[in-house]
Design a protein around this nucleic acid. Structure first.
Length: 119
DNA sequence: AGGGTGACGATCA
DNA sequence: ATGATCGCCACCC
């Protein structure tokens, strides 16, 4: 369900719709096992550039998402405290390798296709 | 309306 | 590599 923007007069700014959120969620769910993406790249792929922080928020509040497959730019783990180790563990369980403290993006970064995945 | 807050990101010392 | 700063943006008082 999309939230209707207030069309009071002819011209109205498109209020922050849930469409963006939905797309972000879909992108997150599209991440294959063993692959990861960064908050920023994900936001961009979802057609919502510069929304890295919003992606993080969504990751926190929407249950059931493979949240651990989303890392910071360059493969850095950005989760606070205990979640950090859990994330690393889960990723390693999927075969994701690390280079020091960060994910080896060279091998595991997922590249979203520009084409619209209709499904 | 206004200010504080991030599971961010890029840049610079 | 590490920490400080600044730009961004939706939320929550």
């Amino acid at each position: 369900m999309k939230q209707r923007s207030k069309s009071s007069s002819g011209k109205n700014i498109p209020v922050v719709s849930n469409d963006r959120r939905v797309r972000v969620v879909q992108c997150i769910r599209a991440l294959p096992k063993g692959k990861v993406s960064s908050y920023g790249a994900l936001a961009k792929a979802a057609g919502w550039p510069r929304a890295a922080r919003q992606v993080a928020r969504i990751l926190r509040e929407v249950p059931g998402l493979p949240w651990y497959r989303v890392v910071g730019a360059g493969g850095a783990i950005k989760c606070p405290g205990e979640y950090a180790s859990e994330q690393r563990f889960r990723l390693q369980m999927e075969g994701v390798t690390f280079r020091g403290a960060r994910v080896d993006m060279k091998k595991h970064e997922f590249h979203f296709s520009k084409a619209r995945r209709v499904r």
